[in-house]
Amino acid sequence: MPEPTPMEIPTIQVACTVNGEAFTRDVPVDMPLLEFLRDVLGLTGTKGACLEGECGSCTVLVDGETINSCLMLAAQANNRNITTIEGLASGAELDVIQDSFVATGAAQCGYCTPGLIMSARALLNDRPDISETELLTALEGNICRCTGYASIIEAVKRAHRESQSS
């Protein structure tokens, strides 16, 4: 079977909500959600680094659950509600997790940071109390090459404390 030329990839209409805003776009059926968010919508805060689901850089929330956007097709996001790193801060005010990542120096090169913050967001959304193991498990799919994770753990704990006390 001859390989389709670029122009022959069928497209499909995708209507979804991203960070509260509704979008409708025609996209190639084989386009991953990551590429849709970055190249079609221009939301480049979500990163790609392995495209194998191994590093978690592309983590976003779909209907409140973390997923690896490199492994979901954009077409599968039809009628779904997506939250990316761009959707966390309200105006100039950072989400408490974002603020904690800056405070503890958890963003060094920063490339893994958006994915980690989304994983942490899902964890803190779910749980009023978190154990050390739950924290580590929630972040185990997010690779960081710079920090050795200590400042990241500290950031999530700080964010958890601050959101408990507020």
Binding site: L43, T44, G45, T46, T84, I85, E86, L88, A89, L94, Q98, D99, F101, V102, A103, G105, A107, G110, T113, P114, I117
Partner: peptide
């Protein structure tokens, strides 16, 4: 605080 911190955590 790192001066590139905010842009990194907001994407």
């Amino acid at each position: 605080r790192r001066i590139d911190g905010k842009e990194k955590v907001t994407g």
